[in-house]
Simulated scan of single mutants.
Amino acid sequence: MAQRNFNDEPICVECIGDAFLREEIQETGGAAACSICGTVAPSWAARQYAARIQPLLASRFVRESQRDEMLASDLPELEAVFGEDSPHYKNFSEAYTRCNGYEISVLPLKAVFAAAKEDFEGGYVFNVDLRVSGEVFGDFVILARQALSEGHKDVAAVLASAALEDALKRFARANNLDVHEKTMHDIVNLLKSSGLVGGAQKSLLDTMPKLRNAALHAEWNKLTEPDVSSIIGFVEQFLLTKFSA
């Protein structure tokens, strides 16, 4: 006796609930006695149903390896650019834990990464970085001004000069300038040649490297209180115009 092949068993249109699939069976199926209900009606073999439905299921399902690839590539990028405490990083992590493989559960992952990409390309992340950096440098300036008012010129000079140099570097990096192993004098020239500073600020900036060098090399005799005050004033103005956007 020949072994029964269930893949070839006919299943009629009356046993199918999906309206679109029923219409397709009516148009293309051959009349046969249904293996389920016995009705003679337009039918498909079981293998035909499988061939027709499998691509639909596949289009709605993401392989586990693909999800792992997203986690391995996208999550480190979000961490590197925005940090672990950022909403983008946290939202992506949470969406991944809820992802069950179906396309509808993968969509939030794609949406989070798309939003992060838009913020990155729009410069939002760099604006946030500058604002936070400006707040930190502002604290240094406050301490420097306080030290100067109390007669501690040298302490004020070091605080103000450190804030100045780091502020210039961060501002240059935020504008895609290479400051690696560059001296402060080099950074000043980069900012000027790129048109990122101008007017009175540009003229005052020319004097800053010399004052900074004297402060950080402990050449106190080359610094006067007005010199230190000018560094503090310049940093305050630079933070106000470049770091408060």
Rank of each mutant, 00 (worst) to 15 (best):
R4V: 05
R4D: 01
R4I: 09
N5M: 04
N7F: 14
N7Q: 01
D8F: 01
E9W: 00
V13E: 00
V13R: 01
E14L: 05
D18A: 10
L21E: 09
E27Q: 13
G30E: 13
S35T: 05
I36E: 08
G38S: 09
A41T: 13
A41Q: 10
A45K: 10
A45D: 02
R47D: 06
Y49T: 00
Y49M: 00
A50F: 09
A51I: 00
P55S: 02
L56Q: 03
L57V: 15
L57E: 06
A58V: 13
S59N: 12
V62F: 01
R63I: 01
E64P: 00
D68V: 10
D68I: 09
D68A: 14
L75V: 03
L75Y: 15
P76G: 10
L78A: 06
E79A: 08
E79T: 14
A80H: 13
G83M: 04
E84W: 08
K90S: 11
E94Y: 15
Y96W: 13
T97Y: 07
C99N: 13
G101T: 06
Y102K: 13
E103R: 14
S105R: 12
K110R: 14
A114P: 01
A116I: 04
G122I: 05
G122T: 11
V125W: 03
V125K: 05
N127I: 07
N127F: 03
V128R: 12
L130P: 00
S133N: 01
S133R: 01
S133Q: 00
V136D: 00
V136N: 07
I142F: 05
I142S: 15
I142N: 13
L143Y: 13
Q146S: 15
A147F: 09
L148P: 03
S149F: 00
G151Y: 03
H152L: 14
K153H: 04
A160T: 07
A163K: 09
E165N: 07
E165W: 12
E165S: 10
D166C: 06
A167I: 02
L168N: 08
N175R: 14
D178V: 10
K182H: 10
T183S: 15
T183G: 12
H185N: 11
L190Y: 09
L190F: 12
K192F: 04
D206Q: 13
D206N: 11
T207E: 07
M208A: 03
P209N: 06
R212F: 11
A215D: 08
A218T: 12
P226E: 05
P226A: 06
V228G: 09
S229E: 15
S229H: 11
S230C: 10
S230E: 11
I231H: 04
I232T: 06
G233F: 14
V235F: 10
L239A: 00
L239S: 01
K242C: 04
F243E: 00
F243Y: 02
S244I: 06
A245P: 13
A245R: 13
